[in-house]
Design a protein around this nucleic acid. Structure first.
Lengths: 341, 341
DNA sequence: CTGTTAGCGCATTCAG
DNA sequence: CTGAATGCGCTAACAG
C-alpha cells in the first residue's frame, strides 16, 4: 500500500512536501501541489491513520457506550440516535465506534479506551447515577458527554430531554380529562431517567392534592414484557386506576397487548400514555398518546457537544431539549364509574 | 500516559522485556515478569493500539456497513445482530466500528477504510446485487463478509438465512389453510433478500398451479408505511386476496393498522404473515405468524466467518441458516366467500 | 534470558 | 518554498 514516500518519489519531491499537500498547508507552489495531487490519485494513496495517531493527532474515533444489552434492545429509539449521530460526525471526519456494550460483570474501565488510543472521545448513554467509570473519566479530564443522565456529584457535559416538562405535561393532560387515580409504570430504576420520570409523576400527583399510592405503581424495566405485567398488575388493584402512565412506548405497547388479553378497553376503560414516540407508536391500535423525543436535535446536540469537548474548550455544557406531546387515541375522559372487573 | 519505556524504567529492565511480557512471549524469567507486571499495574499502562497497528499488527477493528439509513431504522432486527456480534467479537479482542452508513451519494469506496488503517475487516449488510464497492473489495482481496446477500459474480463469504425454505414454508401453510389467492408485499427490490423472497413467492404459486397475478403484488420498502399502503392497495383489488405475505414484520405491522382503519378483520377476512420475528411480533394483536431469523446463530456465524477471513484462511464459506416458522394468530382458514367490501 | 538496533508512516521542528 | 533530521510507541530480528 502506497505511503507518503511512494508518492514523494513519483512526484519527485520529498515526502515532506507530500505531507504538506495532504494537510493543506499553505506555502507549496501550486505547480508542485498539482504534481503531488496527481501522484496521490494515481497511487490511490490514503494517509495511514495509525501513524497520524502515533504523532498525537488523535484517532478521530468516537466511542458509544451503552449500559447493557437490554438497553439497546428495548429502545429502537437509540438506534435512530446512532444513525443521526453518525451522519453528523462523519461530516467532520469522525467515525463511530461501538465502544463495547458494558458487561454485566461490573462496570468496565472506560479510560482504557483512551489509554489504548482507540477513541478520542466517548458518548455515554444512560449511565447509572454516580457511575464509577464516569467519575473516573471526569477525574482524568477525558472528553466525554452523557446522553440521558445527569449528575450533581460530577461535572460533565450532557444532553437530555426535559423529563420534568414531559411528565408534568402528561399528567396535566390526564387531570384535564378528569383522571385522578393514575397509575405509573417505571423504567429500570437504576437509570436516572427512570428515577426522574418517576419522581415527577409523584410530584405532580401531590401538587393537585391526589395522594401517591404505591399500589398503583409498578417498577418495570422498559421492556414489552414488563409493560404487559405492569398493566396486568395495576388493573387488578382495587380500586383500579383509570389511567396509567408508562415510562416508555415499549412498555405501553406491552400494555395494549395485556389489555386485549384481559378484555379491557383502551381508552374506554383505561387510558394509557407512552414516552419516546417510537415509529410504531402511531401505528399501533389505538395510536399511542406519547411524548416525542426530538431525536434529530438530540443527535445534533450530541455531535456539537462532543466536538466542543474534543476542541478542548473547557466549560461543561448542559443541553436540555424540549419533548413534544403527541396526542393520539390512547386516552379518553375518566368515566364516572369505577373500573373494569 | 505511561509508555513501555516508563514501565521499563520502573521495573529496571529494557522496554523489550516489557514488550515480551505484554505479549505473553515465553522466555522471561518469572521473577522479572512479576516485576514488570506490577510496574504495569502501578503505572496503569496500556499498550498503544496505534503503535501496534503501525507495526503491522492490524487494528483489531471490524467495521459494519449498512446500505442506508432507512435500512437500519426499518429493521430493529439488525440492532440485535450488532449487539450479538459485539459480544462475540469483544471476546477475541476486537472492536466494532460503525463503518459509516452509506451515503445516498453513490456507493462510497470501502477500500478506503482499509487503506486508512481504520479496520481489519468488514461486515457488510444487504448490499445490492453486484454492488461495485463489494466487487472492488473482493478484487483487492480484502477480508470482508456479507450478511443477507449473495453473489454469483463475485466470490466471498456470506451468511444468510434460507429464504427459499422460509417463503415456501409460509406458502405451504397458507395453501393448507385453503388459500389460493395470495398477495405479496415485497421489501426494497434493490436488495437481494427482497428479490429472493419475491421470486420464491412466485415460484411456489406456480408450483401448485395458481397463476402469478401482479395485481396482488405490491412493491414495498420494508417500512411500516409501505406495509400500510400495500395492504390497502391489495385489499382494494378485485378479486381481493384472502391472504397476504409480507416480506418483513414491520410491513405486516403496518398492515394490521391498515386493516383496522379499513374495518377489515385479520385473520377473519384476510390472513397475513410477516418475516423476521422481531420482538414486537408476538405482542401485536393479532400476534403475527412469522418466520423467525435465528439472530444468535447469525451473530455467531458472522463472528466465526470474519475471524476466519482475518486469519487468512483463504476459502470462502457460505453459511445458510434455517429460519423457524412461528405460527401465531394472524392466519385463518380461507373462507368460501370472496373478500370484504 | 535480556538488551540493542532498526523501522512502521507521519508531522513537527529547524535549516537551507 | 522545500528538504533533513528527529521522535511518536511498539515489535521483529538479531546480539550478547
Amino acid at each position: 500500500m502506497a505511503s507518503q514516500q511512494d508518492v514523494a518519489k513519483r512526484a519527485r519531491v520529498s515526502f515532506m512536501t507530500v505531507s504538506r499537500v495532504v494537510n493543506n498547508h499553505p506555502g507549496v507552489k501550486s505547480e508542485t501541489r498539482e504534481r503531488v495531487l496527481s501522484a496521490i490519485r494515481e497511487l490511490a494513496y490514503y494517509p495511514n491513520a495509525a501513524a497520524r495517531t502515533l504523532n498525537g493527532r488523535g484517532t478521530r474515533n468516537i466511542g458509544m457506550i451503552f449500559p447493557h444489552k437490554e438497553f439497546v434492545l428495548s429502545r429502537p429509539f437509540f438506534i435512530e440516535l446512532c444513525v443521526e449521530l453518525e451522519s453528523h460526525l462523519s461530516d467532520t471526519g469522525y467515525h463511530l465506534f461501538l465502544g463495547s456494550v458494558r458487561k454485566e460483570t461490573g462496570s468496565l474501565d472506560l479510560t482504557v479506551l483512551f489509554k489504548e488510543r482507540k477513541v478520542d472521545g466517548l458518548v455515554i448513554f444512560a449511565p447509572e447515577r454516580d457511575d464509577e467509570s464516569v467519575k473516573r473519566l471526569a477525574a482524568e479530564g477525558l472528553p466525554f458527554i452523557v446522553v440521558h443522565g445527569r449528575s450533581d456529584a460530577v461535572e460533565y457535559s450532557y444532553v437530555d430531554i426535559d423529563n420534568e416538562r414531559g411528565v408534568s405535561r402528561i399528567m396535566r393532560y390526564l387531570f384535564d380529562l378528569g383522571h385522578r387515580r393514575i397509575g405509573f409504570v417505571s423504567g429500570n430504576m437504576e437509570e436516572v431517567n427512570a428515577q426522574d420520570r418517576s419522581a415527577c409523576y409523584r410530584r405532580e400527583l401531590e401538587a393537585v392534592g391526589v395522594g401517591f399510592d404505591e399500589r398503583i405503581v409498578h417498577t418495570g424495566d422498559w421492556s414489552l414484557e414488563s409493560g404487559y405485567e405492569g398493566f396486568r398488575a395495576l388493573v387488578g388493584r382495587a380500586p383500579a386506576p383509570s389511567a396509567i402512565v408508562f415510562s416508555n412506548d415499549q412498555m405501553a405497547l406491552g400494555a395494549i397487548k395485556a389489555a386485549h388479553d384481559l378484555g379491557v378497553s383502551i381508552p374506554g376503560d383505561v387510558s394509557i400514555t407512552g414516552y419516546d414516540d417510537i415509529k410504531y407508536a402511531s401505528f399501533v391500535v389505538p395510536a399511542l398518546t406519547t411524548m416525542r423525543q426530538p431525536l434529530d436535535r438530540v443527535g445534533e446536540a450530541v455531535a456539537t457537544l462532543i466536538l466542543e469537548r474534543l476542541d478542548g474548550r473547557s466549560e461543561c455544557r448542559r443541553v436540555i431539549l424540549e419533548p413534544e406531546f403527541k396526542i393520539r387515541d390512547s386516552c379518553g375522559p375518566a368515566r364516572a364509574g369505577g373500573s373494569p372487573p
